[in-house]
Design a protein around this nucleic acid. Structure first.
Lengths: 224, 224
DNA sequence: TTTTGTGAAAGAGTTCACAGCC
DNA sequence: GGCTGTGAACTCTTTCACAAAA
């Protein structure tokens, strides 16, 4: 195979967008939906830039990646642009995903996904705590972790979201891979060992907090 | 003033480490503590690299930033290196911080910070829901949001952590700035407008989920 | 020989600057 | 005049490759 991946494992080849560009496009999409709701029909790159704290050039560059369609002195059509971004970022059907771990983080994810997440649908959740799986949460059926492999396999789920303690993360991940999961979003504070063909992304709240502390300190001790 | 900041607002000047480097150093520190607990005394860059999914060169480069002290064919002293990283990342006293919002995300942050977070100490939490603030959580005193400005000012808190709904984020942020907060870590799904002297960092779970969906799809539809 | 520290090269991402369009 | 799209320049980050150390 030997796919073109960047150093973090993201596949960029074939019209692929870079990771920072994808992040920003998601934010632009949000802004455009907000503007549309307010009845705004068109918008300039410098107006968008002010709202999301970037430069107009950055925005135009990002939009190039999905085929810009702005017009000089007229700007971009809000709804049209939003649709264009969505087409690039989302598939026709949301990817079914399994969520493992229904602690605070897991529940926060379910709450978010239940509302507005067109690209991913959490179709099954798992935990080992019986009280957490006694009834569906935000409409998502909750199972005991012992049934995980079976449910994942039966539903052909290929995406997993890990919100378990770091100490359990690798074991759960291995079980998911064995059940056919090829994409994993890991919220646990542990780096995972994964087979070459699986894509992993990490959201490490502990790292975020410590990194923030580092730069905050540098900002605080900076000259006024 | 005119400080040397990168495009994301991080202050890098004066022996400062880059953002990705700081993130990785935090992860190395974790690994070193784990190794120390197991009784490992020394480690090579390629051993660390395997454990955290990077290259040995990347690790050596990062360690250069804090003054490498490895020895050829002997590697790095585990405890010594851990201490060196900590000295760079952490201050003598943890930065006092205010947490606003005690929903799932806020509670997850408190749980994390209560355990192992040497660089930041959440000294006060706020919410508008009376049941959430009826008693301390993980030892952290919880107040009604109406007392926020007063408590923040009285305790000289300059760091804020926002875990409120996106719709409330800007208003709460403004109140925090007025009360003297100069550093803000924002978990809400909203981009904030902030004064020039404040440092903001964003952890946007919604963006993480959608970004994951995008790259997961590209991985799934990639040739086997 | 193995492994470190680091200059130099390569690669990725951002910003500049301007021609062309409205 | 004002704004977009984009080549070119620039900056930041990673990887290569190798001299020096053990």
């Amino acid at each position: 195979m030997s796919l073109t991946r960047n150093h973090k494992g993201h596949i960029l080849a074939g019209g692929g967008l870079s990771e920072p560009s994808v992040s920003r496009l998601i934010i632009y999409k949000r802004l455009l939906l907000e503007l549309a709701k307010k009845g705004t029909h068109s918008v300039f790159s410098h107006q968008m830039a002010r709202r999301v704290n970037t430069s107009p050039e950055q925005i135009r560059r990002d939009l190039m990646g999905i085929g810009s369609d702005g017009r000089p002195t007229r700007g971009y059509q809000v709804l049209e642009l939003e649709k264009r971004i969505s087409t690039f970022l989302e598939s026709a059907r949301p990817e079914p995903a399994a969520l493992v771990g229904l602690g605070n983080v897991g529940r926060a994810l379910l709450a978010y996904a239940a509302g507005r997440l067109p690209s991913l649908r959490i179709t099954a959740a798992f935990d080992i705590n019986p009280v957490r799986i006694s009834h569906p949460i935000y409409g998502c059926p909750c199972h005991h972790a012992r049934d995980m492999a079976r449910v994942v396999r039966e539903n052909g789920i290929t995406a997993g979201i890990l919100a378990v303690p770091g100490s359990a993360a690798q074991a759960v991940a291995n079980e998911l891979f064995a059940a056919g999961v090829r994409n994993l979003l890991n919220f646990a504070d542990a780096r995972l060992q994964v087979p070459a063909e699986v894509f992993v992304d990490h959201v490490d709240i502990g790292v975020s907090l410590e990194k923030f502390a580092y730069f905050a300190r540098r900002n605080s001790s900076a000259p006024e």
